[in-house]
Nucleic acid binder design. Structure first.
Length: 584
RNA sequence: GCGCCCUUAGCUCAACUGGAUAGAGCACCUGCCUUCUAAGCAGGGGGUUGCAGGUUCGAGUCCUGCAGGGCGCACCA
């Protein structure tokens, strides 16, 4: 991927090489001090440290080489040995004209279109989706969109929790209520009936779960049914089939509202048949051992400094554990795809578990060494009190309710601000939905992935400042501007003056933001970038009255800059899974 | 007991391989809508980066210790 800063890095790198220094030292980045320069290179200081020389002298040698290059309008040594650089407006203008050709803005495809599976979401069937599923879903979905756009072959796998004890709990409750037949006779083609069951399960599950916790005989019954289900006995396996179908249909609605997409609807159940042969093979290949009656895989490394518990493959009673299912899933994926990477977007608290699973998978050669497995963990969602988030009633907040609240608030805000008053009610409803989703998603995605974050309803449904709706607003404003401008000469050359320069420079930074995001699997970097870009536009917009510009060449140039801006903002928002309305 | 993570402005958060004057948003204060959408723009106040040492030309970032908080440590997932 060649961004402007990478292009400059190449040029400065050559200057370092000419002095028999490593080209890596020539790394150029956008300056921390825009008042001093557009770009900076810190390599002279690093070089001087190794060579025990004066950094400013090292920098001077580099600067002497660079000064022959006419793309720079300023080359300066500052402070202890920073090399500060500005490019000429002509160069900037040509560079921009070049990268907008294919609407990829300097983003090159990777050398090979590696296949990557992103594992995210992980909701349990028959349980209501709550706000906790928000992070996993949207971080994973965003990463999938980004890698896919850049040129990787990606798959989003929802990895359902569809084979566990929670189903035994639910089914036993239905059995006590004599409602098993109701489910068995359910017509999957009847949407109303399916919705009714979906609703019923959502409300029933918390009660069933609480009952099992409170009364041991209920729990014993739930476990019996779980075992029967896993042995594929009727009626439970037939009930499961219906519950599975209805749950998926319900989830699809939820995820559609959130604009989250999955390519694979695999779950724990879909790999159960792989477990037995896998365990047999692991035994035969001598990767397993017995410990206190359980079958385990030792995953310690000789140079481990910390304790590393073994992966528990089979319990004393011979039943598989979730790590076993995860290994079977890996086997399944390696079989079906030509994978280069697997990325698990799962709660940070699972870090040890994934380390054990990954170690076991490599050790037992279930996955080739060159397949990279990453746990991109995310922090817990806490309430404003710093403790794991609960509603006032003490329960979890349903994802659906959060979205509804957001939409209602957006509708109110539209009315208050007297926006979209000339738009009919149906479109206004659509706009409110987009505003709400933008608010919720951006508020979440702008947090660093790994740190815990505070769930604050007011913030999630806030529309001012660094928010999703702000970004929509900027994009929509540009769209409106371009509509009013009508036809203009898009091939006219860009003119970079003082008022245009900051925006023009921002428009070159997209590849850097994407690279950083992909390297760290951290979408908040991209959020930061799109916010800065939108701000740069807003500032430009405030400074220049474009439509009334009498100099036609300048008017064309500024319309073109506006057009590039909205294209980029909309592209980035689409990578964040956020839709931009035509007007708002 | 062992291990991992966190502590930055009143609040919520950024700060890429160690770089210059630690940045945003909210809240607060001052301007700006009879020219393109004020969900906006321009500007202001607000900081001993939990504490104490160390390494370095340079530390929010690396090392050591301490305090406070969160989480995880085989028969749940």
């Amino acid at each position: 991927m060649t961004s402007l800063s990478q292009k400059l890095s190449g040029i400065v790198g050559q200057a370092f090489e000419a002095s028999e220094l490593s080209a890596d030292l020539g790394a150029v980045r956008v300056s921390d001090r825009p008042d001093l320069a557009q770009f900076q290179c810190n390599g002279a200081m690093a070089a001087a440290k190794v060579a025990k020389k004066n950094p400013r002298e090292v920098a001077q040698v580099i600067v002497d080489v660079l000064s022959k290059n006419e793309i720079f309008s300023k080359i300066e040594i500052a402070g202890p040995g920073f090399i500060n650089l500005n490019v000429t407006d002509e160069f900037l203008q040509e560079y921009l004209a070049d990268i907008v050709q294919d609407n990829r803005f300097g983003i090159d495809a990777p050398d090979t279109a590696e296949e990557i599976i992103f594992d995210y979401g992980g909701p349990n069937i028959a349980k209501p989706m709550h706000v906790g599923h928000l992070r996993a879903s949207i971080i994973g979905d965003t990463l999938r969109r980004i890698f896919s756009f850049v040129g990787y072959k990606t798959y989003g796998d929802i990895h359902l929790g569809d084979w566990g004890t929670h189903l035994g709990m639910l089914f036993s409750d239905y059995e006590r209520d004599g409602k098993i037949d109701w489910i068995l006779n359910l017509d999957l083609n009847n949407e109303a009936d399916c919705d009714a069951l979906f609703e019923d399960m959502s409300e029933r599950y918390p009660k069933a779960s609480a009952a099992c916790k409170a009364d041991e005989t209920f729990m014993v019954e739930a476990l019996r049914i779980t075992k029967a289900l896993q042995d594929k006995q009727d009626p439970y396996i037939s009930v499961w089939e219906k519950v599975f179908q209805v749950s998926i249909a319900g989830m699809k609605k939820n995820f559609a509202a959130l604009n989250v997409h999955f390519d694979l609807w695999q779950g724990e159940a879909s790999v159960q048949d792989l477990i037995e042969p896998m365990v047999e093979k692991l035994r035969a290949d001598d990767f397993t051992e017995m410990s206190n009656g359980a079958t385990i895989i030792d995953v310690t490394h000789p140079d481990d400094k910390k304790e590393m518990p073994p992966l528990l493959l089979l319990k004393t009673d011979g039943a598989a554990m979730y790590g076993t299912t995860d290994l079977a899933t890996i086997v399944d994926r390696v079989e079906k795809f030509d994978l280069a990477r697997m990325v698990y977007v799962v709660d940070q608290r699972q870090a040890l578990h994934f380390e054990q699973v990954f170690r076991a998978a490599y050790k037992a050669k279930l996955v080739p060494e060159n397949v990279e497995m990453t746990h991109a963990g995310f922090g817990t969602m806490n309430g404003t009190d710093g403790k794991p988030f609960k509603t006032r009633a003490g329960g979890v907040m349903k994802l659906e309710d959060l979205i509804t609240m957001g939409v209602e608030k957006a509708q109110m805000r539209l009315k208050e601000a007297n926006l979209a008053s000339d738009i009919d009610e149906v479109e206004r409803g659509e706009i409110a939905k987009k505003v709400a989703i933008a608010a919720i998603k951006f508020a979440d995605l702008q947090n660093q992935r790994t740190s815990n974050y505070v769930f604050d309803l007011d913030r999630l449904t806030s529309f001012e400042g660094k928010t999703g709706p702000y970004l929509l607003y900027q994009a929509v404003r540009i769209k409106s501007l371009l509509r009013k401008a009508g036809e203009f000469d898009e091939s006219a050359p860009l003119i970079i003056q003082d008022a245009d320069r900051a925006l023009a420079l921002m428009l070159t930074e997209l590849p850097d933001a994407l690279n950083l995001t992909m390297r760290t699997y951290a979408p908040h970097h991209l959020c930061e970038h799109v916010y800065k870009l939108s701000q740069a536009f807003s500032s430009f917009y405030g400074n220049c009255h474009i439509l009334s510009e009498e100099n036609e060449a300048l008017r064309n140039s500024r319309l073109k800059l506006s057009q590039i801006s909205v294209t980029q903002i909309e592209l980035i928002l689409s990578l964040l899974g956020i839709d931009v309305p035509e007007r708002m």
